[in-house]
Design a protein around this nucleic acid. Sequence first.
DNA 1: CGGGATCCTGGCGGATACTG
DNA 2: CAGTATCCGCCAGGATCCCG
Lengths: 138, 138
Amino acid sequence: METNEKKHENCFMRETCLKDDLCPMVLAHKLLSGKRKIMILWFLSNKVLRYNEILKRMPDVTQKMLTKQLRSLEDDHLIMRHVYPTVPPKVEYEITDIGKRIIPILELMHHFGASYIEIFRDELNARKNAQEPPEICN
Amino acid sequence: METNEKKHENCFMRETCLKDDLCPMVLAHKLLSGKRKIMILWFLSNKVLRYNEILKRMPDVTQKMLTKQLRSLEDDHLIMRHVYPTVPPKVEYEITDIGKRIIPILELMHHFGASYIEIFRDELNARKNAQEPPEICN
DNA sequence: CGGGATCCTGGCGGATACTG
DNA sequence: CAGTATCCGCCAGGATCCCG
């Protein structure tokens, strides 16, 4: 496993790493680190969606935050924004070619999450109940 | 691509999603969302490392934050902490079997980051220079 | 050596109201 | 419909000092 070791070391030992965005890992992490970005990309991965369609799929997000995350993704060239100057306005969001390269990552994350849940379901439920005491407390 | 679409919808439309940790995507995102967790797992993916060895590989992290991220990863069963009660103390960190399942995700992220840099190198450099004005300003 | 304890701050993200 | 505008709480994360 020496090649693997070397690769990992190289990535982070380069002086540019952690400082600018030219370390592949740091950059990838940055591009995906917004709280809603992963979900947005996940939704757009197989469909063009309008603003409200995305909003409907995210039960607990505010309009402001959704807009912010969409703008950030657009600035990073991961999604495209199509504005139709009609009345009422219509705006569609579409994943870019580069954005599509993230989908395999999301698939793996989904798969990993599912495995993790299988193994630790009981503990996850226990944690959940611990931080969400029953109604009795009221 | 209907199966794909269904799968994605199901993940987030389930009432549990975004609310508890039982949505695979939300959970996976949570487990990896710490600022340094990805790098730590990356380093440990092929090696057992001591505390200071990890620290040396992260130029800009404080001891407190490294400790915090390590504890969080340990609580989530992604790494193990081995304490040798010697003088001076020696602590080693090792990735767990479940943690190892994250490595393919990191490999993909690294690959994606590299592709992204190839395509947008100029823009990334421009952004970097914009937020880091030359010494002249002093 | 490998932390813990404290204090502090930026900005992420939420709530609510308004608008072209 | 698809956003702004405004206000604000919170906490991840940083700086600094101390310790067994």
